[in-house]
Nucleic acid binder design. Structure first.
Length: 422
RNA sequence: GUGACCGUAGCUCAAUGGUAGAGUCCCAGAUUGUGAUUCUGGUUGUUGCGGGUUCGAGCCCCGUCGGUCACCCCA
């Protein structure tokens, strides 16, 4: 172990059990997205570093996994999927009817110190709607996000979506008599509302010409009368998902490119831990396409690490996952060779079972029958088919009930299939 | 990038500065046509790596790499 070459810090090795968990998450994401009529796409893992500088500024390269390739190009392992999505959507938008509802599941990379819920390699599920400026696109995305959580077994008691709109802060600026160009610095302070100390907030806000009390009063004012959010809430109410949603103007998200409604999902039982978030970014496509394509857009992204942790620490979700993993690990049948002279017949039966789509395994080399049963048990086989001297008659033993019945070999696939679908 | 704690068998962990161990897992046998338990045997280590102190270092010191967590940041 010491002298062997280790994997890089923060990079992932998926042993079978880990891979099963990952696939469970991916399958769930994909199913819900398809259920919502989203189309799967995929972009490059490696992108020009400029794609990310353009949107976030040069200092962001500190956290990018970037390097110079052999052709002297500045390149970056993608830290997120949205810029690639915006570029591809803008480039070919005329080929698609609007709205374009796209999703991707892909590996992303960030050069950061690994810690809880954060690694250097992670997977993101990115869902975006391009070409639809109305609030119904935001509602559709929030609904999709909520339903993905419901698919994992979470309820409104576990998670909540806090929704805000960056534009309502323009109203705040007006009330305070501040110029409109103060929006960005004010939002930067609001973003740290729950992380900075009160004195720090007060100092920062005073420098901008307002105060912590004024901001707090504004937040309460909007919470008490969320009229600007009425259309969004009505849509979510009609979908039966209103219980998950809370209006909270304090959620503005750190990312610079958001332009309108933004939202963040929190785990209620885990100290309001952030699970995922998203929002509207109507100017990003124009920015990335140098103004050639102006396309309204909104989207969200969920990472596999945080959601995986949350599933494991939420009993109902964990139980749901375990049940799914047990189902997906189960073997339909195990063919045991009791008489080596019948091995060719056993292989023919193994092939017939596999050809009919049943998940079937057998020992590769001769082994005692007891050992073969142990293997069948370990592989979670539903039944063992014993091929021995009485061939072409074989025995089918159901492991759970220990019941054993005789069957002609030709009838085995049907018999196993009957067991698989109770 | 900063700081704290931790690195001993595949895994979980022992071992006053004095011969590196246990459980578990894996493999085989007890059991030559039936799964559990039990029993027996077997494989596995430059104690992360490199220096230093010492008669002697898994243990103490320094460095380094890795892990965990927090800060920073969070797309």
């Amino acid at each position: 172990m010491s002298q062997s070459i280790q994997s890089l810090p923060g990079f992932r090795e998926f042993f079978p059990a880990d891979c099963a968990v990952r696939n469970y998450i991916f399958d769930s994401w994909r199913q819900v997205a398809l259920r919502y009529g989203f189309n799967e796409w995929e972009g490059p893992v490696l992108e020009p570093t400029e794609l990310y500088r353009k949107k976030s500024g040069a200092e962001i390269t500190q956290q990018l996994f970037c390097f110079t390739d052999k052709g002297d190009r500045e390149v970056t392992l993608r830290p997120e999927l949205t810029p690639s999505a915006a570029r591809m959507a803008a480039a070919r938008q005329r080929d698609f009817k609007k709205p374009m509802k796209w999703f991707e599941i892909g590996a992303c990379f960030r050069y950061e110190a690994p810690q809880k819920g954060r690694l250097r390699e992670f997977y993101q599920w990115n869902c975006d709607v391009f070409g639809e400026a109305s609030v119904e696109a935001d509602a559709e995305l929030i609904a999709l996000g909520i339903d993905s959580l419901r698919a994992f077994g979470f309820t409104a008691a576990d998670v909540a979506v806090r929704v805000s709109d960056r534009n309502i802060w323009n109203l705040f600026l007006q009330q305070q008599g501040l110029p409109a160009d103060q929006l960005t610095p004010v939002l930067a302070v609001i973003d740290k509302w729950e992380r900075d100390k009160p004195e720090v907030l007060e100092t920062k806000l005073a420098a901008l010409g307002t105060s912590r009390a004024a901001v707090a009063a504004f937040i309460e004012q909007v919470k008490a009368d969320p009229a600007p959010f009425a259309p969004l809430l009505a849509s979510l109410e009609a979908r039966g998902l209103r219980d998950f949603v809370r209006i909270d103007p304090g959620i503005v998200r750190g990312l610079a490119y958001y332009t309108g409604i933004v939202f963040e999902v929190f785990a209620l039982q885990q100290g309001m831990r952030a699970v995922f978030g998203g929002g509207r970014y109507d100017s990003l496509c124009a920015l990335i396409s140098d103004g050639s394509t102006d396309l309204p857009a909104a989207g969200f992204a969920m990472g596999d690490v945080v959601i995986g942790d949350l599933i494991k620490s939420t009993p109902a979700a964990a139980a749901k996952m375990e049940a799914a993993l047990a189902r997906s690990a189960a073997l339909d049948a195990y063919v045991a060779v009791a008489d080596e002279a019948r091995r060719p017949d056993a292989l023919a039966l193994l092939q017939a079972l596999r050809d009919s789509g049943l998940r079937t395994d057998a020992a590769l080399t001769p082994a005692k029958l007891g050992k073969q049963f142990q293997s069948a048990e370990a592989l979670k086989a539903r039944a063992v088919v014993i091929v021995g001297s009485e061939f072409p008659e074989v025995k089918i033993k159901v492991l759970a009930t220990r019941e054993e019945t005789a069957s002609p070999v030709a009838g085995v696939p049907d018999a196993i299939r009957a067991l698989a679908q109770p």
